[in-house]
Amino acid sequence: MSAPRPNPETRPGSASGPDAVTDLVRWAVFSCLLVPVVLLWCGSSLAGATGTAVGLAAVTAVCRALLRGSERGAARMRAAEGAPHRGRHQRSGSGAHRGGRRPGGHTPVV
């Protein structure tokens, strides 16, 4: 059985991709739980440890929202790069006033 090949967009060791954000949020939640336990173990008050936990949870939630918004913006930019660019006035084609060929050729009228 062979090892699964990494997705080209999410290379191992890179900080981009949907898995990186999920891993980052998981570590942040782990820290939100671990820090108050350590504070209580070191002799801090219950109110201080609770306040720290609430503050870390708020920062984690805001960072998660910002990361998800950034992912959506990057996805929109990637989608827009694939769309054809149609010029300044959003017209396609070459009309007669734009120097296109005329069906009759360039023979003088006699």
Rank of each mutant, 00 (worst) to 15 (best):
G73T: 14
P8W: 13
R5P: 04
T22Q: 03
P6T: 06
L33M: 09
P108W: 15
R64G: 12
A28P: 01
M1Y: 08
A3P: 07
R101F: 10
F30M: 05
A53V: 02
D23Q: 10
L67N: 13
R72F: 10
E71W: 03
S2W: 11
L46R: 03
V59S: 15
G99V: 08
V35R: 07
R98A: 09
R101C: 06
A75S: 14
A20I: 05
V54K: 00
A61G: 15
Q90D: 08
G48F: 05
L24H: 09
C63Q: 10
L46N: 01
L39D: 02
A3S: 13
R88V: 00
G93M: 06
P8I: 12
C42S: 05
R68G: 15
P6N: 08
L46G: 01
V35L: 04
V29C: 05
S31A: 09
V21M: 03
S94Y: 11
T52Y: 03
P103Y: 12
A20L: 04
P12E: 07
L40G: 06
G93K: 02
V54M: 01
R88T: 00
G51C: 05
V62P: 06
G69E: 12
S31H: 05
G17V: 08
H89E: 04
R11D: 06
A79W: 05
A83N: 12
V38C: 04
A79F: 05
